[in-house]
Computed example of a mutant assay.
Amino acid sequence: MRKVMIALALLGMAGPVTAQVATIRTKTADYEFTYRYPAAVARIPALKRGLDAEATTIRRNTARDAASDRREAKASGFPFRPYSYEKTWKLVTETPRFLSLSSDSYNYTGGAHGQPASSALLWDKAAGRRLETQSVFVSSAALQAATRTDYCARLKAEQMRRNQGDLSSMNACPPLKDLTLLLGSRNGRAIDRIGLIADPYVAGSYAEGSYEVTLPVTRAILAAVKPAYRAGFAPGR
């Protein structure tokens, strides 16, 4: 949780991560399910309906798969390990144009360990609809070209720190398509920074955890924003 709070603070989130969170929770003999989102979501009925529907779908799938695994384990004479799924949406920032959210999830299906993952969500207040964060840019190629050099340099520095300078165990710099893209703001007026999250295995081993890099919005990044959204962005520092 501390790493999450640091990453969101760098992106400009105001207030504690755990403030005013709505929680959906179910626990049975087969599985445990928890889904959370911040109070900012409840102020937007369409967004709340979308996340509630997502929670319902994931819970049903978890219940179905866990029940199936329990039956198979019993038939094979193996012990059953209950499933668990947890997802928490957090407020990254809110500007006059956008509401930016990030999520951390953890899915355990009876193996050696569960699988953590990150995701992002952008709500366009002007259009009243949910967007994929990369969809506000001209193309993934344009955004990657604008961020690649700075991102890879910062990622490598963190990889070297965690691996104590041992280059042999370091993964290559991952492409943008393998990363979670967050949009943040220092002042709440415009998007002026972006966060790039590499989940476990993407930039390092499972034990290394996720790698999170925050970049200021540069002129090159601004040029990669679609004209329809450019007024909602500003240069960062």
Rank of each mutant, 00 (worst) to 15 (best):
A126E: 15
S135R: 05
K226A: 05
G50F: 03
K90A: 07
R161S: 12
Y206K: 05
R161V: 08
E86G: 15
A127M: 12
A145M: 08
D65A: 13
R70V: 05
Y229I: 01
V202Q: 07
R36S: 01
E212L: 14
N61Y: 11
Q159F: 07
A231C: 03
K177S: 15
R154H: 14
T214K: 11
P216N: 06
A141S: 09
Y83W: 13
A141L: 07
A112G: 15
Q134K: 04
E72D: 10
G236C: 07
A40W: 05
M13Q: 01
T88R: 05
I44N: 07
A223R: 13
A29M: 02
A141D: 10
A223I: 07
P116N: 11
E32L: 02
A141Q: 10
I58M: 05
A73C: 13
A7N: 09
N163C: 09
L131C: 11
A228E: 15
C152G: 09
A153C: 10
E208F: 06
D65P: 05
M5W: 04
F137N: 02
A153L: 13
K156H: 15
W89L: 02
T18G: 04
P38F: 00
L143Q: 03
S84C: 10
T34Y: 00
L196F: 07
R161P: 06
A198D: 08
E158H: 11
S140T: 03
L179M: 13
N61F: 10
L155C: 12
E158N: 13
R36V: 00
I6G: 01
C173G: 06
P227W: 05
A207W: 10
A73E: 10
I24R: 00
A75W: 09
F33H: 01
D65W: 07
E208R: 09
A126S: 14
R49K: 11
A224T: 04
Y83H: 11
G128W: 12
G128Q: 14
E212F: 15
R193F: 08
K177V: 11
F80Q: 08
A223S: 14
I6S: 02
D30M: 03
A29N: 03
G12Y: 00
D52T: 04
A117L: 12
Y229A: 01
P175F: 06
V21Q: 01
A153Y: 12
L143E: 02
E54M: 05
R71N: 10
S205R: 15
G114T: 12
A19E: 04
V21H: 00
N107C: 11
L167S: 14
A231E: 04
T28Q: 00
L143D: 02
A7E: 07
A7V: 07
G50T: 05
L179D: 09
N187C: 13
S185M: 03
R161F: 10
R64Y: 06
R219K: 15
S140P: 01
A39T: 08
K74R: 13
G114I: 12
L179H: 09
Q159Y: 09
M170Q: 10
V92F: 06
R81I: 07
G209K: 11
K156A: 14
P175Y: 06
N61S: 14
P227T: 06
L47E: 02
L167C: 08
M170G: 04
S168V: 09
P96T: 05
V41G: 00
V138L: 04
S105T: 11
T133G: 04
N171Q: 12
